[in-house]
């Protein structure tokens, strides 16, 4: 069978089909095979400042965790009166609530169909349950070692940062899990505080900073990007200042972390784009790009 095709090889052109018997070995390919090779068809061109702007979400979340820990430390040391924190938190929540509606002129509220009565009910549920459970929370981890609690809180806060919805479309993202881990950590930390009032205020502060503040942030970012940058900078500097009052080394490290995330990482991303070598060709898996709905009806 091998002697005969050699004489006819010039006449018979190789075809890239499996349904016809051809006088070539199975692994034979033609010269034309690599003609259809294409590179980096999905690669994007990034602009530096746009990436820096997007990275501010991560910075914000890091700052939130930092602020929370700093406030908890102040409360634990007795340097911060719970009433003062409660008052500040309440006032800022009210301001944020009004801002939330003002930013899009009540459009989001109309879309979701959520009434003010429902908001009030949610707020009441938060306050009542936290207040009711605060005595239990206070005695909850009495017999557990402090180090265990710290380790658990660190683990949970890291989990919160990992699973947070930064806008990426990945399987690991789960805003529910992230919020739950943050609440778990806050309850653990609150149970270390000296009195049940402290615990109550700590947990309610955790809701404000981990649940309500990201919602406002998202709206700010979408509506007024300029003010969002300002708010981020302000927030970052206040977190740094708070950390500075506790530990200089910690503050330095945190500042370095923030700078690297917001400036170095985008730069590195853009540099790495040059080395991107994504090849596409006929060997790729079939991809159905067309809208299937016209076949279905």
């Amino acid at each position: 069978m091998s002697a005969e095709p050699e004489t006819q090889a010039e006449e018979i052109r190789w075809q890239k089909v499996l349904y016809e018997r051809q006088p070539f070995p199975d692994n034979y390919v033609d010269q034309r095979f690599l003609e259809e090779l294409r590179k980096n068809i999905h690669a994007r061109k990034y602009r530096y400042w746009a990436v820096v702007f997007e990275s501010s979400v991560v910075v914000q979340q890091l700052c939130s965790v930092c602020v929370f820990v700093v406030i908890w430390w102040y409360m634990d040391e007795g340097l911060l009166a719970p009433h003062w924190l409660f008052g500040t938190g309440l006032a800022s929540s009210l301001v944020g609530y009004i801002l939330f509606d003002l930013l899009d002129g009540g459009e989001g509220r109309r879309k979701s169909g959520r009434t003010r009565w429902a908001d009030l009910k949610s707020a009441l549920v938060f306050i009542t349950f936290t207040y009711g459970f605060s005595p239990i929370l206070k005695t909850l981890t009495e017999s557990v070692s402090t180090d265990t609690i710290y380790a658990m809180s660190v683990f949970m806060l890291l989990g919160h940062l990992v699973f947070f919805d930064y806008g990426a479309n990945a399987a690991i993202v789960s805003s529910t899990l992230s919020l739950n881990m943050a609440i778990f950590a806050s309850v653990c930390l609150a149970s270390r505080l000296p009195r049940s009032l402290h615990a109550f205020i700590m947990v309610s502060f955790a809701i404000q900073i981990f649940a309500l503040w990201p919602m406002l942030q998202k709206k700010l970012k979408a509506r007024t990007p300029r003010s969002y940058v300002g708010v981020t900078l302000l927030f970052a500097f206040s977190a740094l200042a708070g950390l500075l009052s506790i530990s200089v080394v910690g503050a330095t490290l945190f500042a370095l972390l923030l700078v690297s995330i917001s400036c170095l990482c985008p730069f590195y991303l853009i540099r790495l784009q040059l080395f991107k070598e994504n090849i596409h060709g006929p060997w790729d898996e079939a991809e159905i790009k067309e809208d299937l709905s016209r076949f279905l009806s």
Partner: peptide, 12 residues
């Protein structure tokens, strides 16, 4: 609020 109460109870 469901998440919050659920997690609070879970921790307890």
């Amino acid at each position: 609020d469901q998440l919050f109460i659920g997690t609070l109870l879970f921790t307890i």
